[in-house]
């Protein structure tokens, strides 16, 4: 069954075509959600793709979070709609308060552009439900501010509520508790720094991202 995926476009987004291409190859419909429109246009799921929304001015995500489309996404998420933020999208979700914590500059001030291994820590989220717990996935990362941090109380909450969905096997950026991805309390909002859409074909060096994106598509057909 085909679902309709809304991919958000901010000025400076640059992974929106990749996300659409991978979704279409899997038989899903996609549509662009323009940042200036206060609507999610009836889509079944929202993906906030990577890039540099608003040039990362002030802080990554700080300006994007006030876009009209974010108001609609907050309402969509509150109603249980699946929302996934990849890389810059994760930063936008934390700035918007849809996910706790913040992404700060990588340890050692290194811009990272490589493929890393992440372990699936929880399969209880819209992005990981089809993966096997403990599986290692090879996924590209491409970021400067991917070093996840939060208060000790927030970390304790994330752990006790099983909300760390992905952890780095070999922490590349200094992220607290090796966190690569987390989900909301209701499990329908997920943010992650690695790019599953760039690991969607053996031609790209890995197709380990497909299991995550397919989880998202399946979570839609279950809820609709």
């Amino acid at each position: 069954m085909s679902a309709r995926i809304g991919v958000v476009l901010f000025p400076g987004s640059n992974c929106e075509l990749d996300v659409q291409e991978v979704a279409r190859a899997a038989g899903q419909e996609t549509t662009i959600l323009w940042h200036g429109d206060r609507t999610v246009d009836g889509v079944d799921a929202v993906v906030i793709p990577g890039g540099f929304a608003h040039g990362d001015y002030l802080r990554p995500g700080a300006i994007a979070r006030f876009s009209p489309v974010m108001t609609a996404i907050e309402e969509f998420a509150a109603a249980g709609g699946p929302v996934v933020g990849i890389c810059n999208g994760f930063q936008v979700l934390t700035e918007a308060g849809l996910l706790p914590g913040a992404l700060q500059k990588n340890r050692g001030l290194r811009f990272l552009c490589s493929t890393v291994e992440v372990r699936v820590e929880s399969t209880n989220s819209v992005l990981t439900s089809g993966a096997e717990s403990g599986t290692t996935l090879r996924l590209p990362v491409n970021h400067f501010e991917g070093n996840y941090t939060c208060s000790a109380e927030t970390l304790a909450m994330l752990r006790s509520e099983d909300r760390v969905v992905l952890r780095y096997v070999d922490n590349p950026n200094g992220s607290m508790d090796d966190i690569a991805g987390i989900c909301s309390r209701e499990r329908n909002v997920v943010g992650l720094m690695p790019h599953p859409e760039r690991a969607s074909s053996s031609l790209l060096g890995s197709e380990d991202g497909l299991v995550l994106l397919q989880s998202l598509y399946r979570s839609i057909s279950r809820s609709s």
Binding site: L58, R59, A62, F66, T94, E95, P100, G101, A102, Q104, T149, C150, S151
Partner: peptide
């Protein structure tokens, strides 16, 4: 609300 991220 805007200029700082109180988390960090």
């Amino acid at each position: 609300r805007f200029l700082i991220n109180p988390v960090i």
